[in-house]
Design a protein around this nucleic acid. Structure first.
Length: 642
RNA sequence: GGGCGCGUCGUCUAGCUAGGACAGGGCGCCGGCCUUCGGAGUCGGAUGUCGCAGGUUCGAAUCCUGCCGCGCCCGCCA
């Protein structure tokens, strides 16, 4: 069998074996392999089998026979053929189900050779090589620190990027900086007031600004005069030479640098930042407007309430038929853009529909060694290029506005681009009763930094308890890895469409289904390999790995590449956004760690007889590699000792 | 009013897109396991009207219809 005898390690062992089973079922039944593929599943209990097919149910309808009899017939017909495949052991019918058993030893060999042969590449595939994906996140206003809800956005976006990258995509991560919003105007207004607010010397700038904003908000709400002035500041911000714009530029830069420190703590890096003020002055909006006006559905209204506005007519679209107002304003009567208008223009830019008029310069040198570029008036032209797919990570409350943008893109004639526009939606994080509001200041105490601080602090205590003789440097380093890993994992393990109620007791629970458990399993594997270094050197016979527990671990290792691909294939558009099952990968990773823990408990490695020890060591290596690769995709630090 | 999402042991949650074998986990609770490579572990136990009511099907947590509860969205705002 060609697939099974390749010299080069297979990239996707589970899928290869499943493919083989499908092939054999097709030979035995004359059903389409597509039909069979859909019916092949994993039995609920491994004692039933390793793979199962429910084709007997479908055939029962056609043949008008009892499905159990049909399954029995097929099993009988396939028995011999199965024996000729080394990785397969036997087929059984159990009622209407067809259950296939793998040969444990052969499959262990097959899988471990794949994982250890590919090493850090294991889990990566070239399924989407050649495609370019742009991900925009988290687009936090540069007027406050990230709170834990912003962190959810950022971690989802970052992890999506890693997963797409593993599937072969060329991924670009982009952040959108709204430095022209009302929040910025409010802060600038305050900055230009007497007395000039004093910066808190011991406080991060974003933290300080976020608190100042809560204060300013009160003036805005209660003082009509102040509100009027703030509106004026907002207008001035559009003029890059104004005092307001200069004040803003300094303030926003300082705030953004502070926010970036939070991102870096979470291991999150970007290639580009798009600043709204630069978009406003780049000519991009004018270019977009021209293109839009060529479309029949975009018109400048001459009369009525919206006279002078450039609007898009939505009444031709089924979905918006029931809308009270069929005209959506893109450019106001004074010529300025609405958010919808700007968003459509930006989306067009992302797909390369508008030639890039922006210039770029380095904003910061990131700890990953790479520069993040920001849009600017002065810098250089860049080759950011066109993208095949665009993902915008935004809260689910923006589902309709996002869909509207993609619909308008379609109306403008960019059908493909519309289809390839994805809103990665996620529900908000709240805090037992209240939401996290920048305005009301309810985020105070729940900023991402504070959560990371507390998690790291607790991790420091635990590390110190377990490693009393280690250096402070060691303890600090590991505490950081454990603390940040725990926070990232907590945010990823919840399905994005489910709201998270943040609780300290859960965030700081390092037992059970949490990142430290995963990191711990890796550290244990690492320790075994370290100790083995001095002892074992015999060439391993991997077919010796055949106990229940070993086999379960082997299967989990074999499934990793397919798990990654399944998450990518699961990115499907719905009315409310595009589904992204980041929790599926955390769940896989937890299961993998769990199986290793069982193996660790019941299968001694170093104390086993030499031949078994050699084989188990290879299994430990394969596990460690897979766990490390999976953690890397999740953005959770890989820990050698903890 | 229209639209979207959520509702699963005490609690948090997976599974729902492609219906299938006793609904999986975590925390908490009860009880075992350190003369075995790190106990952030492991083994066992108790705990469930899968929001409610119908329907489709050989078979429904999953699909359809109608309700109920919670949250969110429907501006030349930002």
């Amino acid at each position: 069998m060609a697939v099974m005898s390749r010299k080069v390690p297979v990239t996707n062992p589970w899928d290869s074996v499943k493919g083989l089973v499908i092939q054999l079922l097709a030979e035995a039944t004359s059903l389409e392999s597509g039909t069979i593929q859909e019916s092949v599943e994993i039995p609920p209990d491994p004692t039933l089998g390793d793979l199962a097919a429910t084709i007997a149910f479908q055939l029962a309808k056609q043949l008008k026979k009892n499905p159990a009899n049909i399954a029995g017939d097929i099993a009988g017909r396939m028995a011999e053929r199965i024996k000729s495949e080394p990785v397969l052991s036997r087929i059984e019918s159990k009622g209407p189900y067809l259950n296939v058993f793998l040969d444990r030893g052969q499959f262990a060999k097959y899988t471990i050779q794949a994982a250890n042969g590919l090493g850090r590449q294991y889990g990566r595939t070239d399924a989407y090589t050649g495609k370019r994906a742009l991900i925009e996140f988290p687009a936090v206003n540069p007027s406050k620190p990230w709170h834990i809800g912003h962190a959810r956005n950022a971690v989802i976006g970052d992890t999506l990027g890693n997963i797409l990258d593993a599937a072969g995509y060329d991924v670009v991560k982009l952040d959108y900086i709204n430095d022209l919003g009302l929040q910025i105007a409010q802060l600038c207004w305050r900055m230009m007031q007497q007395p000039v607010p004093q910066e808190q010397p011991n406080m991060k700038y974003d933290q300080y600004l976020g608190r100042l904003y809560v204060e300013v908000q009160k003036s805005f709400e209660n003082d009509e005069q102040a509100e009027k002035q703030i509106r004026e500041v907002a207008r001035q911000l559009e003029d890059l030479n104004s005092d307001a714009a200069n004040t803003s530029a300094v303030m926003v830069t300082k705030c953004l640098l502070a926010q970036c420190q939070t991102a870096y703590r979470l291991g999150i890096y970007h290639q580009y930042q798009v600043w709204e003020s630069m978009i406003a002055h780049s000519g991009l909006l004018d270019m977009a407007r021209e293109i839009m006006l060529k479309c029949d559905n975009v018109v400048k209204l001459e009369e009525g309430e919206k006279a002078g506005c450039i609007v898009v007519r939505l009444d031709t679209i089924e979905e918006f038929k029931d809308m009270q107002e069929p005209y959506k304003v893109l450019f106001r009567s004074d010529g300025t853009r609405t958010y919808t208008g700007a968003d459509v223009a930006l989306q067009m830019w992302k797909f390369g529909i508008i030639q890039d008029p922006l210039r770029y310069q380095v904003f910061d040198h990131q700890p990953n060694g790479k520069d993040v570029l920001r849009t600017s008036l002065k810098g250089r032209k860049s080759r950011i290029g066109k993208f095949d797919v665009v993902f915008n990570v935004i809260g689910s409350e923006q589902a309709q506005p996002q869909r509207l943008i993609y619909t308008i893109l379609d109306l403008l004639g960019y059908k493909k681009e519309s289809e390839n526009s994805h809103h990665i939606a996620y529900a908000f994080v709240d805090v037992e009763g209240t939401d996290l509001s920048g305005r009301k200041g309810t985020w105070i105490g729940y900023s991402c930094d504070e959560v990371l601080d507390k998690a790291t602090e607790l991790a420091r205590e635990e590390v110190a308890k377990r490693n009393p003789d280690e250096s402070d440097d060691f303890k600090d380093k590991v505490a950081t890895q454990v603390g940040t890993g725990a926070v990232r994992y907590m945010l990823l393990k919840a399905s994005p469409d489910r709201k998270i109620t943040f609780r300290w007791s859960e965030a700081l629970d390092f037992d059970g289904d949490a990142a430290p458990y995963l990191q711990y399993s890796h550290a244990r594997a690492q320790r075994i390999l370290e100790k083995a270094g001095e002892i074992v050197s015999a060439p391993a016979d991997l077919t010796l790995l055949s106990t229940e527990v070993e086999f379960a671990l082997v299967k989990a290792i074999a499934m990793f590449p397919q798990e990654v691909l399944d998450v990518v294939r699961g990115l499907k558009k719905s009315t409310w956004g595009t589904s992204f099952d980041c929790n599926r990968l955390t769940s896989y990773c937890y299961g993998l760690a769990n199986l290793f823990s069982r193996f660790y408990d019941s299968c001694p490695v170093l104390k086993a007889e030499p031949a078994v020890a050699a084989a188990r060591l290879e299994l430990v290596k394969a596990f460690k590699m897979t766990m490390a690769n999976c953690l890397e995709v999740l953005g959770i630090p890989v820990v050698e000792r903890m």
